[in-house]
Simulated scan of single mutants.
Amino acid sequence: MNIRPLEKQDLPHIYQQKNSRSVMALWFEEPFNSLDELNLLYDRHILDQSERRFVIEDDNEFAGVVELIDINTIHRHCEIQIIIDTRYQGRGLAQEGLQAGIEYGFSVLNLHKIYLYVDVENPAAIHIYEKFGFQNEGRLRQHFFAEGCYHDSYMMGLFANNFYQKK
């Protein structure tokens, strides 16, 4: 596995992910962005210091993305998101990509806390996050709307000192 910054040439892969209803439901986001819209978003956000997006590669092939978003340099926290293309799932890439994203957030950005949102009905993801030391900080009731209904979500957080103690 290799991780590298997202480049404009990766947008067709992002386009495929963004147009998968089941994939975007995991992120509680609306599917169906146009490639033109993604290009505009990329150009608008390329210099935005409140986010970092990385491509996860497997044998030099696009396998997914890990994102640090809403980076807050005053409070030193951010949200992390990860999506692995269905063709690459089951190979441990989610854990490797998550590890790389967390380490970047704590060791490069000097963050104090990284948090995420996960559907309460996604026990596989919750299990992975708990293995990294994320702790459930609360249940957000009917917080996200995806695939025609509202979903409860856990907010889970990880502090730098807990991550390094576990490591």
Rank of each mutant, 00 (worst) to 15 (best):
I74L: 11
V55I: 15
N60Q: 14
T86M: 01
Q17R: 00
Y15F: 02
G97T: 07
D36S: 11
E29R: 14
P31I: 03
Y129T: 08
Y164N: 09
E30M: 12
Q81T: 07
L111F: 06
F132Q: 05
Q89F: 02
L11I: 01
Y164Q: 09
N72S: 10
T86Q: 05
K131W: 07
I114M: 07
I56D: 04
Q95E: 15
E30T: 15
L11R: 03
E30R: 15
R52M: 12
Q17D: 00
Q135L: 07
I102L: 15
I80E: 09
M155S: 09
Y117C: 07
Y150K: 13
Y15M: 00
G64W: 02
I14E: 00
V108N: 13
C149S: 14
F32C: 10
D70L: 12
Y150E: 09
Y88F: 12
L6D: 01
I3D: 04
E57W: 02
N161V: 10
L38Q: 14
A25V: 01
E7A: 10
Q99M: 11
I114A: 07
I3Y: 06
G64N: 07
L140Q: 10
K166E: 09
F106D: 06
I114P: 13
D119C: 06
Y150L: 14
A100P: 04
G148Y: 04
Q9Y: 01
G97D: 06
Q9P: 01
F28I: 02
P12Q: 00
R139M: 12
V120H: 07
V55L: 09
F132M: 08
G133F: 01
V120L: 10
E57C: 11
F159G: 06
N2F: 01
R139F: 01
L35Q: 08
N136H: 09
Q99V: 03
Y115M: 12
G90H: 05
L111M: 11
I114S: 09
I84N: 03
F106V: 04
I128V: 15
E121F: 03
Q17L: 00
F28N: 13
I128P: 07
Y164F: 15
H143N: 12
G157L: 06
A146M: 06
F144I: 10
E7K: 14
N19L: 00
G148S: 08
H77I: 02
E30A: 13
F32T: 08
I83L: 11
E67Y: 02
H45S: 10
L93N: 04
M156Y: 10
L40R: 15
F106N: 05
F145S: 09
F132Y: 05
D85Y: 00
D10P: 01
R53E: 12
F163K: 06
Y150R: 14
F62M: 03
I83C: 08
L111V: 03
R139N: 08
Y150M: 10
Y115K: 12
